[in-house]
Simulated assay, not measured.
Amino acid sequence: MNDMSLPLVHVIDDDTPLRIALYRLLSACGYRVVTYESAAEFLEAPIPDELSCILLDMNMPTTNGFQLQEHLNKNHSHIPIVFLTAHGDIGLSVRAMKAGADNFLSKPVQKDELVSAIEGALERYREFVGERGDLSTLRLRYAKLSAREVEVFNMVVRGQLNKQIAFLLGNSERTVKSQRASIMEKMEVSSVAQLVLAARQLGAI
């Protein structure tokens, strides 16, 4: 399937018959599928920034699945990983999950279990993209604040009152109220609680 609106699944497995079977199965389930016979082949390919996940064989020669996961983590990849292994190793699965794997399945895997794992991984990716988009919007709003408004913003979200802020900045309370109103308007929030939440998302507190 070549419909670019469909979610993309990267299948990385050195077992050629299985790779072909997974390609056919997942294509029939409504996914776009790209297959790779090694971690190196995957790393050489251009990876588009779109709704996708990785179906990754744990036991491969040269670079195994966990090593690829480590490499992707170091390069700040956010594509969810679903591991496949022919050897049910509990210790390995725990290690992979702690490193951020979305799921860990044993071969042979049932169709329903596989699709469920992929859908879960894609949903996590959607949530990440949504959060990233929200943060980008907040940063754009925050960039509109003047230097003095940034000072007032930081004091307000830490719970300081108008008269305290006015005293610390050498301003009148009326000036601080005006600055607070401008901050709320630029940040597009209607309450101090929402402003505090925005500050947390921005890492300001």
Rank of each mutant, 00 (worst) to 15 (best):
S27V: 13
E188H: 06
A39C: 11
F167E: 15
L56N: 05
V115N: 06
V115L: 10
F104A: 04
V192A: 07
V129L: 09
S136F: 11
I183N: 03
E37P: 08
V33M: 05
M184V: 11
A28S: 14
G130Y: 07
N59I: 09
S178A: 14
A39W: 06
R200T: 15
I118G: 02
P17D: 12
A101L: 06
E44K: 01
I118S: 01
A166I: 13
L197W: 07
Q69M: 14
E149I: 06
L26K: 04
V152H: 01
Q201D: 13
L161P: 03
P108T: 14
N73K: 03
E131M: 12
Q201V: 12
A21C: 08
N162P: 11
S191C: 04
E131W: 09
F66Q: 10
S136I: 15
R174M: 13
R95E: 15
G91Y: 03
P80C: 05
L140S: 12
V196H: 10
R132Q: 15
L140F: 08
E123H: 05
T175I: 13
L135A: 10
V192F: 06
M58A: 08
M97E: 05
D134V: 11
L197S: 13
V94E: 09
N103F: 08
L140E: 15
E127T: 14
S172P: 05
D89A: 04
L161C: 03
A99S: 10
L72P: 06
S52R: 00
K186G: 08
D112R: 00
A198P: 01
M184C: 07
L161T: 15
F66D: 12
L56T: 11
E151F: 01
A193F: 02
K163I: 14
Q201N: 10
Q69I: 06
T35D: 07
L43N: 02
S5R: 07
